[in-house]
Design a binder for these strands. Structure first.
Lengths: 204, 204
DNA sequence: TGTAATAAAATACAAATGTATTAAAAAGGA
DNA sequence: TCCTTTTTAATACATTTGTATTTTATTACA
């Protein structure tokens, strides 16, 4: 007497959210109107409305999902070489993967930028922005702990500060690459990240 | 037979542009509709239209003006102590002034963030974004040159890279402060900037 | 197969928005 | 004071946008 529920509602919602991402990356979040989103994911406006009562709900979900995916990836278990320069190199690679060095990650970074900026003037989105920020900070902290493990124990507050330094550096490098994604700029980005890691292994 | 021109047209345009800034900082650039701008600066829609033919023209001018003012401030001639730790401290102060550590600068940073993000998907604004970026990069480079002047000459390319590092760090710290402007966060920001300057004076 | 429930699509509609047009007001010289 | 020009205000209008409403199509189960 009930239970039609043919389509996977959650999958549908994610598909719609991804359409929002596409538009946000290519035209800015403010262009993600219901109709534009419907066109982007080949659905009718009615379908979108069936999955999301209001546009606000849709935008929140779209940001929640992107934050959740980023966090999942940052928290993914990893194996690192046990010691020495191998480990440092591995961590540098890890950090590099967060940078928009190819088209796919550039798109992700553009999505991040548009939602983060929107979050500055939208309290609901602000919560997700802080979540994402915390996750990245934690990720940087883990990296710093790994890097400083090899050398004489340092004050934890110092490591925290260096983690925040790293975190901000990554954000800034990301922005710089979005503004100028030239290959020269990409190379400089790589060198800066590697230098940072190298300095950390040497202790300062 | 001509020349009424009572009001200073340029002043008027700047006043309107500043209204755009206010709205961008408080609600996001997409809320800066003609009517909202008119209300913000107590003018009629007709007056705005007299000064700016289209909304696009207004947004471009508003960004051009903000970029121009930032650049002017960055390029302002300064006197620095001649040598040693005094100079380093002065430069740290200089850098700190670019951070959103009070309400006024936080507002400026929010304006910067909204326009910069809009510039990612608006080619016209993109030009101004790159201008501002170059100016900040140059400013950082000057700071790094001052800091490294005291110690053995370094490769210029290394200094350039450190300048880019500093530049990105400042951008990232700015974003972090916009997301979490707590006083604890502000203190951490100050410590990171000072540590950076100090490390530069020591050479690495 | 038929029927109740659900999903999708189409339509409707009010509010907002950019801009063009028109009317009013203001201002400086003759 | 009057007249021409400019500025400001008011109005009009076509689009766009969010959302509500209505229709149509689909699906699972009896």
């Amino acid at each position: 007497m009930e239970m039609p529920k043919v389509v996977d509602e959650e999958k549908r919602r994610e598909r719609i959210a991804e359409a929002v991402w596409n538009i946000a990356a290519e035209q800015g979040l403010d262009h993600a109107t219901i109709r534009a989103v419907a066109a982007e994911c080949d659905l009718s406006v009615g379908s979108i409305q069936h999955s999301f009562r209001t546009q606000e709900e849709l935008k929140c979900f779209a940001m929640e999902l992107v934050v959740q995916r980023v966090i999942t990836r940052l928290n993914a278990p990893r194996e690192l070489p046990n010691h020495g320069s191998d480990k440092a190199a591995a961590i540098a690679e890890l950090l590099m993967e967060t940078m928009p060095l190819d088209a796919e990650r550039e798109k992700e970074a553009r999505i991040w930028a548009s939602f983060s900026t929107a979050a500055l003037t939208d309290e609901k989105l602000g919560a997700y922005s802080r979540q994402m920020n915390d996750a990245l900070e934690w990720f940087c902290l883990e990296c710093m702990r790994e890097l400083s493990a090899s050398r004489d124990s340092e004050e934890d507050s110092d490591i925290r500060l260096e983690a925040m330094h790293l975190h901000c550096l990554l954000d800034g490098l990301t922005i710089a690459l979005l503004i100028d994604p030239s290959s020269k700029h990409r190379q400089e980005t790589e060198r800066i990240v590697r230098n940072f890691v190298e300095q950390c292994t040497r202790g300062v």
